[in-house]
Design a binder for these strands. Structure first.
Lengths: 204, 204
DNA sequence: GTCTATAACCTGATAGAC
DNA sequence: GTCTATCAGGTTATAGAC
């Protein structure tokens, strides 16, 4: 417990570097990150970073692919499951996201802000679009509420679930809450959001 | 109409630079922005930037203060108004935000990601926290639903309103929508979100 | 006020010893 | 595989002419 700040020592050097890169890139973003920061965080020399990974850009790509998978990969199978009800999907997605975001709070803002800085770079890689566009979930929404675009409900669900993490510093300041209490609110939302989304689905 | 890309020529040089800085900083973030980009966007020489504003950091501070004001300044008076009902406040906030965000879509992600990169830098300046913490709006929420932390409803309201702009590239990919159609959805949400939040307030 | 030229510094990447 | 030392290129900021 002496060093929580630096990377575990019992990993391969390559893995230490990748782990450090995950941490620094997601916290500061690509542009604000210096390869020296990553090397220091990994407890190794700067030259080693370029020995294992060709370049800063290359290392970033690897991390980014992981993060995109982390952010979208988990929910696609849930939303595409033809054997579950709409209600069940809501429960599962919220549960799954809140657990994941509690462990990795700045994952969404990292991904979203990198996309914003350089949209071209990821235009192809958001095939998550394709996967989700035909999701069974959307069919179920369309069936339940043919009068409104299903994207409205996706926005509501994702907004209510992700945004408290994206805006955490702001909300914490408004509520004047210590981190512990904030975590309690997130726990509460696991059960609340599905109910709220269902209430929204029923509004005329 | 010949040049929409560059800054209007009939502004003072100082204002041209500031306008260019607003545009480039908000789109690329502090770290990814080069002062050369701003100078070019402003149609002036790099040295002039340092003549009018001491440094990149200094220019950024000025822009950031403006943006914080733009993001929070508008809603604080609405939420603090003791003469309006909760329902009216919901309507006004949503209307106000969606109009503002339609004009400045990447305002929230800019502010949030800069805060994430360097939280210390803004810890003092988010006194918006103080202003909002005692907002009359929160009292009204607490009165309506004493069983739940008022922050839950703030998160829902803000999440449903802001997140569609923050996640625009993703949602657009999912829905395979051209920008025009996306704007239509945002228009629709002006009337929908207040109803939805009220439905949420009524869930037992 | 505005420009050109350049100083001073920082960052990514490599060469070469061990 | 890992390190130290250093290069090459780019970025901020300034000096000085006009």
């Amino acid at each position: 417990m002496a060093k929580k700040k630096t990377i575990e020592a019992d990993l391969s050097t390559q893995e230490k570097i990748k782990e450090a890169a995950r941490k620094v890139f997601t916290q500061k973003g690509y542009a604000a990150t210096r390869t020296r920061d990553i090397a220091e965080e990994a407890g190794i020399n700067l030259a080693l970073l370029n020995y294992y990974f060709r370049s800063k850009e290359g290392l970033f790509e690897i991390v980014m692919v992981e993060k995109l998978q982390q952010l979208f990969g988990t929910i696609v199978p849930i939303l595409n499951d033809e054997g579950t009800t709409l209600e069940k999907k809501l429960e599962l997605v919220v549960l799954c996201y809140i657990d994941m975001l509690t462990a990795h709070p700045d994952l969404p803002i990292f991904v979203l802000s990198e996309i914003r800085v350089d949209p071209e770079r990821f235009s192809q890689r958001i095939q998550a679009g394709k996967l989700l566009r035909e999701a069974y979930f959307l069919k179920q929404l369309k069936e339940r509420r043919p009068d409104l675009h299903p994207l409205h409900f996706v926005m509501n669900l994702v907004g209510m679930t992700l945004f408290p993490f994206v805006g955490k510093p702001i909300f914490q300041a408004i509520g004047n809450l210590p981190a512990k209490d904030y975590a309690v609110l997130m726990e509460e939302r696991k059960a609340l959001i599905p109910k709220w989304v269902q209430a929204i689905l029923k509004t005329k």
